[in-house]
Design a protein around this nucleic acid. Structure first.
Length: 428
RNA sequence: GGAAGCGUGGCCGAGUGGUCGAAGGCGGCGGUCUUGAAAACCGCAGUGCCGCAAGGCACCAGGGGUUCGAAUCCUCUCGCUUCCGCCA
């Protein structure tokens, strides 16, 4: 959420950012509501001040003159203040209404891009920052993972669909084990080498959390939720982990705070038929190891660069070819100020797979979730900055491993780093 | 899920409907004293909003209500504790 005061002072910038993100935002309407709101506040607070004064008068007279005069004095004061009270009640009602409307409207305003983000309309405007690693040379035609998976009996598409419908699959045997190995290994890398502290969060959260990170109210369509209660399946660990510190004031000394969490992710998205239909690239349920950071406002862009490197350490250690893409203004998500995607090359599908999306949210989420810090014990609380990125998303990492490490006979070598976790060298 | 009790400032803990933003204690900060520290004593200390400012308003889990006036009375919601039931 943006500060209404920021919007007041930077209306043009906010309009431009909303247009770039294709979010219909009526900035003028916001400013009108803000003006009305402040007018009513001034009016009602003046009335409250006079009511308080009258109340104090009654109290004082009663104390001075004793109970015998209470009737007279009390009555005259009562006549005045009852009228004021009615007005106050009426104005308070108006104020509540307009504040709710303004709040709802503000929750629909997207974050403003950082100045370093390239201009652009859509993903074609993204900029490849760097590509690391060489393309694997195969002396045979590499197979896509769905062929490998079925041949090896480690991905069972039919039974996943039988149990849960389209876009679900089951991993079996070495496939399930490979995913588990990747999860355990990635958690170990981030905790042991990158300084993250591991968290096991709930996979179901209240709506408030989703408002905090920015999925609600705008993107309810993409979420699974309990029909009777305000409980929602998480679309990413970002939601519970960022909201851990909701309504808290942290100490500056504890920043930057870094957490890593493994969770499944649930996304309802009504995906266009025919897009990414083959394989396990896109489903309603997938696993992900997520990195979340809380830091000082002036450090967040620096922290973003480090976060990207933390994510990149995984494909690097796996010996996968990867690249870092800088998203343009038009491809940024609703809450993001600046985002880098990390993509790995999959020779079977012949495409770059997005395995991580690392974003700096500035104080956008911190404001929504009310996460603050104190520079020193006497200072006023300030909003901190939040960041997160995948480290990494499992199915796509699994795809890249299968396709890059495949042998001519359809077996798959286990990457060196994973062998201790897999207990085997080759999946056959 | 049922019953009972409880939710006050960073923490503990008072608070007969009327100058209560709230006693007292601990902790914190700044002094005095001390070679230094401790102790003792004195003082300062919440958050948000409106306002150029002076200042004002709000906040005693959260919402609604009664009242001229609510931390205090009523009501609903949430959370915690204990007992019972159920359960991996």
């Amino acid at each position: 959420m943006l500060d209404i005061r920021f919007i007041r002072d930077n209306a043009g910038q906010v309009k431009a950012a909303a247009a770039a993100k294709k979010a219909p935002v009526d900035v003028e309407a916001l400013l009108d509501m803000d003006r009305d709101r402040r007018r009513i506040i001034q009016e009602v607070e003046q009335l409250k001040a006079s009511r308080n004064q009258a109340s104090r008068d009654v109290a004082r007279l009663k104390a001075q003159d004793g109970p015998e005069r209470e009737g007279k004095l009390g009555l005259s004061a009562a006549l005045i203040t009852r009228e004021i009270g009615d007005k106050i009640r009426k104005l308070d009602g108006e104020l509540r209404t307009i504040e709710e409307k303004l709040e709802q409207a503000l929750l629909a305003v997207p974050n403003v891009a950082d100045p370093s983000v390239p201009e652009g309309n859509d993903e074609t405007g993204n900029v490849v920052d760097r590509t690391i690693g060489d393309e694997n040379v195969f002396d045979f035609t590499p197979r896509p993972h769905w062929e490998l998976g079925e041949k090896l009996g480690i991905i069972d598409f039919e039974r996943g669909v039988k149990v849960s419908g389209t876009r679900f699959y089951m991993l079996r045997g070495a496939g399930a084990r490979l995913q588990r190995a990747l999860i355990a290994w990635m958690l170990d890398v981030h905790t042991r080498e990158r300084g993250y502290s591991e968290v096991y969060p709930p996979y179901i959260v209240t709506g408030k959390c989703l408002v905090g990170t920015g999925q609600l109210p705008k993107f309810a369509d993409n979420l699974y939720h309990d029909a009777e209660e305000d409980l929602w399946l998480i679309p990413t660990a970002e939601v519970p982990v960022t909201n851990m510190y909701r309504d808290e004031v942290l100490e500056a000394n504890d920043l930057t705070l870094k957490h890593v969490a493994y969770t499944p992710c649930f996304r309802r998205e009504k995906m266009s038929a025919g897009k990414d239909t083959r394989g396990i690239k896109r489903g309603h349920q997938f696993d992900k190891v997520e990195l979340v950071k809380f830091c000082l406002p002036e450090k967040s862009n620096e922290e973003l660069e480090i976060l990207v490197e933390d994510a990149c350490s995984i494909p690097r250690k796996l010996g996968l070819r990867y690249r870092v893409v800088r998203l343009c203004t038009g491809d940024l998500t609703f809450a993001s100020m600046k985002t880098y995607d990390v993509e790995v090359w999959s020779p079977g599908c012949k495409e770059w797979l997005e395995v991580s999306s690392c974003s700096n949210f500035g104080d956008f989420q911190a404001r929504r979730a009310n996460i603050r810090f104190r520079r020193d014990p006497k200072a006023r609380p300030e909003y901190l900055h939040t960041l997160n990125g995948s480290g990494l998303a499992l199915p796509r990492t699994l795809i890249a491993v299968l396709e890059n490490y495949q042998n001519p006979d359809g077996t798959v070598a286990v990457p060196e780093a994973l062998r201790p976790y897999m207990g085997m060298d080759v999946i056959r």
